[in-house]
Design a binder for these strands. Structure first.
Lengths: 232, 232
DNA sequence: TTCACCGCTTGACAAATATCAAGCGTCGAA
DNA sequence: TTCGACGCTTGATATTTGTCAAGCGGTGAA
């Protein structure tokens, strides 16, 4: 892997605490690749040969069953994905495809496991990362099971607003069909859900969202840090 | 904590690889408590003071929001729960209550974190445990988003059948109202879902289930190891 | 033994969500 | 510029799921 990328990877919580020696050992077998949009990087059920790090672009994690499919998460720079499968040396549970043009680091899984076995700091960093991932999925599970689709959309908008800086107007960060899938509904219903939020002061123009009455929307959405705060 | 319980705790994957010294240090601050049924052990949002180990009985993990509530998992002996919150020193995301009379070990979270910081083997064991938990939730997420309630019930029955030994007849391992909540539906709908599986050879008598036509049910349920096999 | 409670079931109905078909608007290639 | 593809929207309709109310049957306490 070209050394120019070392610093960005090294800066990740996952890699920052390990010894130089082990980090370079990991990087020795790694390589960087550029992918065009809509390329399937991995398929669920395949053996987990590589730990992936997204340097730029974005990646959709999705899954299929019996002709249906659903988006489970979106990975943005700079972070890793399929860490759990790599560590357990188990098949991927999700497929991954690039959303846009993306630069991705591929680190051989067996190298990750080998270093994991000898570097306690690396093991501890992995714990922190996995605990974070686990808690995120639990939150998402609660979102799905405790809320209607309208409530999920309202809370998603509030989260996205905060991520975008907190202003009244902001842009959706991916296309509506994918948003619908992430929120567990059909594109048609997402369209209707946006209309359903109109009485609470949400206006939509393409990917541009404006929240005209923050208090009103929050009163409806009832955001809760134990579901919506993905930082804890 | 009484020493008599040491062997059962020590036998857990989580604790089996650590040094005696560290294990005893953990146990020194731990204590065992017996709880009657329906006792709320922890509440979501509370700080994670203890890592819990279920020695006997069973515990329901659930969550509430806006007047609704849902069961997320059931913990059976011998295993731990709320490991992620303990490690991250973050608030619990789920509440826990005993289903039946249960004996539970409480290990102070700060002790767990302290030993985690110095014992690489313990850290590695935690990684394995967390990766397992993470993958289980992802499977459950896929179950929820990709299947109808009828399909979820059918696959649940097949999983439970396997757990019970694989015979055509077996018992549900908890009351139907909780099963309904775990599967993401109302008790009324669970009742109807059982009727909906009658054409596929499923008969119900109280908590006793009989699968009269294994092939037929499996053809309908389409079980998939990437969703239904909780051992990988 | 009797009775109140509780979990489960059932039916009727309402609400939420999905499906199907059509149309609209934008964007990029010919 | 024109055309076609594609994502989004809309309306009509079907399916799924939830809600409410009532009744059934087992269990445990008086």
């Amino acid at each position: 892997m070209p050394e120019q990328h070392y610093p960005e990877v090294r800066a990740l919580g996952l890699f920052s605490g390990m010894t130089d020696e082990n980090f370079f050992a990991l990087m020795r077998g790694a390589y960087v690749q550029n992918f065009p949009p809509q390329i399937e990087l991995i398929g669920e059920g395949e053996p987990s040969d590589f730990l992936h790090v997204v340097l730029s672009g974005s990646v959709d994690l999705f899954s299929q069953w019996n002709g249906r499919d659903t988006s489970l998460a979106t990975v943005r720079p700079i972070s890793t994905f399929i860490l759990a499968a790599t560590i357990k040396n188990a098949p991927y549970l999700m497929s991954a495809r690039t959303i846009e043009k993306s630069r991705i680091v591929l680190i051989p899984s067996q190298d990750v496991r080998a270093i994991f076995d000898v570097d306690g700091n690396f093991a501890r960093a992995i714990v922190t990362e996995l605990a974070q991932c686990y808690r995120s999925v639990i939150k998402s599970q609660k979102d799905l099971k405790l809320r209607t689709s309208l409530e999920r959309l309202a809370n998603y908008l509030l989260r996205q607003q905060k991520r975008a800086g907190g202003g009244a107007a902001f842009d959706l960060d991916f296309e509506k069909r994918r948003l619908a899938s992430v929120l567990g509904m059909t594109p048609e219903n997402l369209s209707r859900a946006f209309k359903g939020l109109l009485p609470y002061g949400v206006s939509v123009e393409g990917t541009r969202i404006t929240i005209n009455d923050q208090t009103d929307l929050e009163r409806f959405a009832k955001p809760n840090p134990l579901i919506d705060d993905f930082s804890t």
